[in-house]
Each structure stands twice: as structure tokens, then as C-alpha cells.
Computed example of a mutant assay.
Amino acid sequence: MTRIDDTFARLKAEGKKAFVAYVMAGDPDYETSLQIVKALPEAGVDIIELGMPFTDPMADGETIQLAGQRALEGGQTLDKTLQIARELRKDDDKTPIVMMGYYNPIWSRGVDTFLAQAKEAGIDGLIIVDLPPEEDDELCIPAQKAGLNFIRLATPTTDDKRLPKVLQNTSGFVYYVSITGITGAAEAQAADVGPEVARIKAQTDLPVIVGFGIKTPEAAQAIAGVADGCVVGSAIVAQIAAGKTVAEIAAFVAGLAAGAHRA
């Protein structure tokens, strides 16, 4: 059982849906980013997705691309991203942290070295968007052996023939991408998402969390209502880009979390 498994078990017992928040590590700078991450659990975040800045973020829209650029320009590194997790763990041993990003920085570090460091830092899971199931031996299988969940993305174009392959080594939860395209590009619609979530849940016992295109508490409530929870990323990152204070960002996140928890 990982912290992710424990969190979903607790939420199920409480009759609540999960709220997952994404932030880019090191955006707008290391210290501010650390303070934002530390504020997320108190704002109602059940799982933290910590973005790993990368020079070629092909699945991300402009908002998160720019966040990654700000972080890299500010000197953010993989080591500093792991350090953010370590700092959170000094005060919080319950909130799961999922590192989200691309394979290149992990491959450059060396898979075994990275996994050992991630586990030591208190990381609970990985979402690596550019590693398909055909490459499971690269990272997915080693990660699960190291005690980390490997969370896979399913999309509107993942048909019934492809879905079992996507699900076969997934653990923690399934991340359903509600729209085709890049992050932050359009608004998710519960009427479209609901049947797709049901289709996925017919083939797995894992929770299904929906992300992409959720920007308001009302949208969080609607999407969480047809899934096991929702993820908000670009809308939070946009608040950071606008120069809002940590307190203002936490208040914005609290509104989104309350929406998801009302579902």
C-alpha cells in the first residue's frame, strides 16, 4: 500500500472524491514554489502532482510550458525538485506526491539512481507522459518494484482495443485526459467525460481521476461527480504566473478543492 492507495481508501470511507493539484517545481522560483507546495494540503489538496521542468514539454500548453521555462531559468534542477518533496515530508508524511513529466531527465540520471532518490525523498508515484506501455521495462516495471506507483494516461482516443494495454501495469490511479490536445486548451464537459470514465472503470478497479480543462470550482464539482476525482493544473499555474501571493494561490486552490469535495 502506498500513500496514494491509503488516500483513496480514506476518501472512499469518507464518501469524498479526490482533488489533485499540479504545480511546476521551481515556478516562479525555488523558495516560492516550496511555500506553495507546503500550502496545498491545508488548502484541501489530496494528492500533489509536482511537475519536473523540461526543455521540450510536448504534451503541455503555453501556460505550463512557460512555467517550465521560468523554473529552468531560475535554476530548477531534478535535485531541487526532489528536495521540495523532502522539505514537505518534514511536516507531512501523508499527502501523496506524484512527479509528472518526461522521461529524458530520468534516463539521463539513470533509472535505478533516480528511483532510489525518489523513494528516499518521499515520492509516491510517477506520471511520465512520453513512455507508452510498450516501454514498460524502461521505467514502469522498475518503479513498481521500487514501491512507486506508475500512473498511466488514458485519452478520448484510447479505444477499447488499446485500453487493456494501457491499464496492464498501471497502479495508484488512472489519469483520464478529458480532451484531445494539450493542457489548458479547452474546458472539460462532464457529459462527455462520464461515459468515458465508465468505460475505463469497466476494465479496472483503480480510481479514475480526470484532468485537463478544469478551471473553476463548479467544473471541479461537475467532473469529480462523474469520476473518482479531478486534477487542476493550468488554472493554478496561471495564478502563479500572474504573480499572486502564496496565500492568494492557496485560497484559489481551496475553492477548487471544495468544489471537488462537494461532488
Rank of each mutant, 00 (worst) to 15 (best):
207 P>N: 04
11 L>E: 04
154 A>M: 06
109 R>F: 01
108 S>E: 14
26 G>V: 13
188 A>P: 14
213 G>P: 08
257 A>Q: 05
250 A>D: 11
146 A>T: 10
83 Q>H: 14
169 N>L: 07
243 G>I: 05
176 Y>G: 09
144 Q>C: 01
87 E>C: 02
3 R>P: 12
140 C>Y: 00
59 A>T: 09
141 I>H: 03
182 I>V: 15
228 D>Q: 10
20 V>P: 03
139 L>M: 09
36 I>A: 01
185 A>M: 11
263 A>K: 03
11 L>T: 05
147 G>K: 05
5 D>T: 15
64 I>F: 12
121 A>F: 04
192 D>Q: 14
54 F>Y: 15
184 G>T: 05
160 D>G: 09
132 P>H: 01
171 S>T: 15
248 E>S: 13
157 T>A: 12
231 V>I: 15
128 I>A: 10
177 V>I: 15
197 V>C: 11
224 A>S: 15
50 L>Y: 13
104 N>P: 09
204 T>I: 00
229 G>M: 09
18 A>M: 09
250 A>S: 14
3 R>E: 06
100 M>C: 07
31 E>L: 10
29 D>G: 03
116 A>C: 09
16 K>P: 05
153 L>E: 07
158 T>I: 03
57 P>N: 09
166 V>T: 10
208 V>I: 14
263 A>P: 08
170 T>V: 13
48 I>K: 07
198 A>P: 09
133 P>G: 07
238 A>D: 14
61 G>R: 08
62 E>S: 01
166 V>I: 15
74 G>V: 11
4 I>C: 07
88 L>C: 03
120 E>I: 04
235 A>I: 10
141 I>D: 02
32 T>H: 02
7 T>C: 14
118 A>Q: 10
191 A>Q: 13
229 G>S: 05
37 V>D: 03
156 P>I: 06
221 Q>Y: 02
180 T>S: 12
70 R>K: 04
260 A>W: 12
253 V>M: 08
47 I>V: 15
233 G>Q: 06
256 L>T: 10
194 G>A: 15
103 Y>A: 15
237 V>C: 08
14 E>V: 05
103 Y>D: 03
198 A>H: 03
36 I>Q: 01
58 M>C: 01
12 K>L: 00
133 P>T: 13
120 E>P: 07
84 I>E: 05
92 D>K: 11
12 K>N: 12
